[in-house]
């Protein structure tokens, strides 16, 4: 029996988790402007891809579960906490940890899209092939971006 439903559900879970991670970053690091702005753009992609995934999955008879975004209150508190330490060098370590987690999640999502693409090819499901082709670059770009930010920021955080 095909396990494509399993792959779609796992992708729904990991893509949602990536979206939430991207949405949380600006709250956690409000003074890291490039992180704030680019994460916002990438979250736009992640949300659009999640929606397409849900629609395509539904067309194939698989209903994806939806996970609510962590409560906004937490976001506001996180932002206030972050602003209160904007002048502290130690916040750099938190940023490194968050970027590292983002990279891991985005890389995982990219792999999940690869799994879906492979299965869709094998099962000749054109809609799923097209979906994976359109969405997987975004996960790759997100992972690459997280890595590049780590490369740029880490020397200063660690050396100072």
């Amino acid at each position: 029996m095909s396990k494509i439903a399993l792959v779609l559900r796992e992708l729904g879970r990991s893509q949602t988790s990536l979206l939430h991670e991207l949405q949380a970053l600006p709250d956690r690091h409000p003074d890291e402007h490039e992180i704030v702005h680019t994460a916002h753009d990438l979250a736009g992609w992640a949300a659009a891809d999640l929606q397409r995934l849900g629609e395509t999955a539904a067309d194939t008879g698989v209903a994806l579960r939806s996970w609510p975004r962590p409560a906004p209150l937490r976001g506001a508190v996180a932002a206030r906490a972050a602003r209160s330490v904007r002048h502290r060098p130690e916040t750099g370590l938190l940023l490194l940890a968050d970027l590292r987690r983002l990279h891991r999640k985005a890389a995982g999502v990219a792999l999940d899209w690869t799994l879906l693409a492979q299965a869709a090819q094998a099962m000749r499901r054109a809609a799923l092939v097209e979906l994976a082709g359109a969405c997987s670059p975004h996960a790759h770009q997100t992972a690459t971006w997280a890595r590049s930010q780590l490369v740029v920021v880490s020397p200063q955080v660690i050396a100072s």
Partner: peptide, 21 residues
């Protein structure tokens, strides 16, 4: 000669100053 990353751009330099590094 540091070359582990692109030279730091001004906007990031001001952030490092804000952060105290």
């Amino acid at each position: 000669i540091p070359h582990m990353a692109p030279p730091t751009h001004a906007m990031q330099m001001f952030r490092y100053v804000e952060q105290g590094t």
